[in-house]
Computed example of a mutant assay.
Amino acid sequence: MSSLLPSHLIADPAAGLPPERLLGIIRFQTEIAKVGLDLSVVIERVALLAQILTGGSGAAVELAEGEEMVYRAASGIAERQLGLRLARQGSLSGLCVEQGVPLRCEDSETDARVDREACRSVGLRSMIVVPLRHGDLTVGVLKVLSAQPAAFQDADLLTLELISEVVASALVHATRYSAQVETARDLFLRATRDSLTGLGNRALFYDRLHQGLKLARRHGHSLGIVLVDMDGLKRINDEHGHQAGDAALRILAERLRALTRESDTLARLGGDEFGILLAAVKDPAAARDFAFKLADLVQGTFSFDGMPFDLSASVGAVVFPEDGGEVEALLHQADLAMYEMKRARATMRAAKIR
């Protein structure tokens, strides 16, 4: 249940925190300042640092999009729920946005304000939710959660309240960096874009994956999931610098974009990994054929700073429902297929050298 703090703590929140927690908040502020102006990176770091600072089992930044709350960044036990959409009505996060005040749940099994089934799917029993305000609009919430009931104290609630001001300021600065800063929609768009390649990011990919699986189950359709891992990025970075590595990632993104349809979802998942959701695919054999074709077509050289570089990628593909019914199982199978291609290519290169 939500707690009302003593009046002296409301007047001066920092008065209720021990020195080591205040130092933690200062370090939090410093880390967020270092991240820069990439909104998706900012909120990913916010979730992780909030979890560490409060000792929670996980944390999430949820944005209010229409009548839904969407996990746009997540850490710990919430990480696998990235992209999850919940109805604002009947959720503690939605209530926090509506009321604009921090809320605390001691036990999701007995708190009537929460979506109990959603809490069970995440694996949480208690949580603190604080609003994130963008001007006069509450655009979302910062939430820390625990697998144990009654895991959070007043100090944790105070900590999140102080952090939320830092996060809100970071959101404002990150969105003002763009020429389009006037609406909440711009905030959501920036939270789902990869600044290096211009593709969707990991949050967008998981969002579309959850939604795609929901529609596929409802209508009896198939859904293809393709994972693409660039070969040799670490070597390029180590030998020629990160500018060359960034150029390679942008070239690979361009080649992947040219080979995917408008109905597909292409995203950079982080580092050297990309993901593609195929809106319509006949069967697993067709998905595997697409993976091999993709690997062949993205392969080739590119030039950076007057130097030629080889570019290639390993690809793995699976299809719902034949290869699995849940997000984790499907991604695991796609990973296995991708690394099988990578191992096969390494074996071929070694054989040629001999």
Rank of each mutant, 00 (worst) to 15 (best):
L227Q: 01
Q243A: 09
D231H: 08
A287V: 04
A253K: 04
D238E: 04
L215N: 11
G316H: 08
E262Q: 14
L213F: 02
K282C: 03
L213V: 04
A286S: 13
R261A: 08
Q243K: 11
R218K: 12
S312V: 12
A258P: 05
L199M: 09
G241L: 06
Q243W: 00
P308A: 12
D194T: 08
T265L: 09
G306M: 11
P308Y: 08
F320N: 14
L266R: 09
S195D: 14
R235G: 09
E262H: 12
D283Y: 07
L196F: 07
R217T: 06
G271I: 06
G316C: 03
F320C: 15
L252F: 06
L233K: 01
T192A: 15
T192Q: 15
R261E: 09
D229F: 02
E273F: 08
R250N: 05
A244K: 03
H219C: 09
E328H: 07
T197M: 04
A313L: 10
D296W: 10
A329E: 15
T197D: 01
L278F: 07
G325W: 14
D323G: 08
A287M: 05
R250F: 04
K293A: 11
A253D: 02
N201Q: 02
I236F: 07
L215K: 14
H242C: 01
L259P: 00
L311C: 13
D305V: 10
R250G: 01
R250I: 11
A280P: 07
D246P: 05
G271H: 01
G271K: 03
P321V: 14
R193I: 15
S314Q: 07
L266W: 11
L259M: 11
Q243E: 09
F302R: 11
E328D: 15
L294M: 13
R208G: 03
H210D: 07
V281F: 02
R190T: 09
A244F: 05
I225N: 00
G220E: 06
F304R: 10
V319W: 10
L277K: 12
D207N: 14
L252A: 05
E239A: 10
L213P: 05
L269K: 01
D229Y: 02
L297E: 13
G300I: 12
E273P: 06
H240T: 00
A244M: 00
M307P: 00
F274N: 03
A279C: 13
L256F: 02
V228R: 00
G270A: 06
E239P: 00
G220L: 06
S195F: 09
A253T: 03
F274R: 08
E239V: 06
I251P: 02
A248L: 03
L227S: 02
Y206Q: 10
A253W: 01
L277I: 13
R217Y: 04
A285D: 02
L256K: 06
A280L: 14
T260N: 07
L277D: 14
R217A: 08
L233H: 03
A244Y: 04
D305M: 12
V281K: 02
D229K: 04
D238S: 05
L330N: 13
M307G: 06
R190L: 15
L204F: 15
T197I: 07
L311I: 13
D246L: 04
D296C: 08
E322I: 12
G270M: 05
S263F: 11
T197E: 01
L277S: 12
R202W: 03
S314Y: 06
I276A: 05
A285Y: 00
M307T: 12
D310S: 13
E254N: 09
L256S: 04
